[in-house]
Structure formats: structure tokens, C-alpha cells
Amino acid sequence: MSETLASTFTIQVDGQTVTVQAGQSIMEACDAAGIYIPRLCDCEGLVPQGSCRVCCVDINGRIQAACTQPAAPGQVIGNETPTLNAHRRTLVEMLFHEGNHLCPICEASGRCELQAMAYRLGITQASPYPYLQPVRPVDASHPDIALDNNRCILCGRCIRASRDIDQKHVFDYVGRGIHKRIGVSAARLAETDASLEDEAIARGTCPVGCILRKREGFDTPVGQRLFDRRPIDLDNAVQHHIPTQAVPAHIESDPP
């Protein structure tokens, strides 16, 4: 009895009381309670890395990433507030302007989480940022997989899936600042041991149209794609099945 009391506590999220199991992040506690916090780089089953900042919430007056911030007793949290959604809109707009996002010709269109987040946030009007229109390489060397870096948002989901689930370390960041890119563990993808069976290559691991499984594009008609009719939310979030032996100790978050 006393153990149960010590291992759970409550927080307030947008006025709703959420019960937290000790050790959960704010994101995990809200996911379990059915409250959606918008996110791009976080993905159930992968170590949270807190880099996209879309999941930022207001915790007792400070804005912090929900995926990496541990829940603590008595926190008062704002999630779907006009201010936070304005920040999220800015972040998503910057991602669109930093890469080359030609949705009309992208095979991820309709199931892309970046696009879906922009729809959810209602982005229609011009933003103050310039389109950077970078020139980034496309690597189509692998017989089954193509990489179009023009659409990469550097969320690192492929890196974590390849490292922690596939144990292959195919992907990693290279370069710094605006030159930061996703690199592969050889000169070209064809020379790595990446394969269609990898979690890193599974559809949905890459939230955008950067990692592409060849000959699978445009398989769902327009109008029936994941985000054609309903916004991105908890129910359609990607989840990874992690074999137990592959879970690094620091993401073991289930309460004892």
C-alpha cells in the first residue's frame, strides 16, 4: 500500500489531473492518460532526445521539452495554449523553410508528420522567414532504400532506431549548425548493412519523406492517407516494438 502511494503522484495538464508513475517523463505520463502533446522527434519506443522542441510545454511558468522533462509532484502544466501553439507553429515553419519541402511530389505526403503537424497547427499564411532552398544530396544507391536529405528534419529517429533496436549504427549526425546532416556508416547507403527489415527503415520511423522504401511510394490513394481526414494525434502516433534485450537501461521507465 505505502509502496503504491510513493510510486504515484499527480500533475495538472491544461487543468486536467494526471496520475504519474514515478520515473515517467511528462510525455509518458500524458501519453498514458490519453493527452496528446504535439511532437516530431519523440517516438514511443525510442530514447527521447528533446531536439525538435515541438513538445515544449509550460511547466510552472518555464517552457521545457515534455519528452525529456521528468514529471514531478504538483507540476502545473500548459500544453494546448495559444502561446505554446504559436511557438510550435514557428518551429514547424522554420523546418519547412530550412529544407526543400515540395509536398506535391513527395511520396510521404499524406502520412508525413511534419506536414500533419503544420495542418494541425493551421499553417496557411506566409511566414517571415526566407526559403533557404539548400542543395542536399540524394542517395539512391541502395537497391531497396533511397535517402532524400532535402526533406530531413534531423529528428534523429533513424539514428536511435538503428543504434538501439537494430544495433547497426547505420545513421548518425555529421557536421554542425546549419550544415548538420544525417550521414550513413559508409560512403553510400548501398555499402552499409541497412535493409528493409530494419526498424530504422520501417515506414513511419522517418517522420518525413527522407528515408524512402523503394517501390512502395504512392500506394495509398489521395483522400485515404493517414492524415487526409484526421489530424495527427495519439492514436496514429508511431510506436516501435523494442526487443527487451535491446532496451538501454536509461529508457527502462516502467514502474517496478
Partner: peptide, 10 residues
């Protein structure tokens, strides 16, 4: 006003 289904980039 744009309702959800009215916003499309493709």
C-alpha cells in the same frame, strides 16, 4: 477560415 481538411500542401 480553414477547417482541418481544407489545409493541404499537395
Amino acid at each position: 477560415e480553414f477547417s482541418y481538411g481544407m489545409i493541404k500542401y499537395d
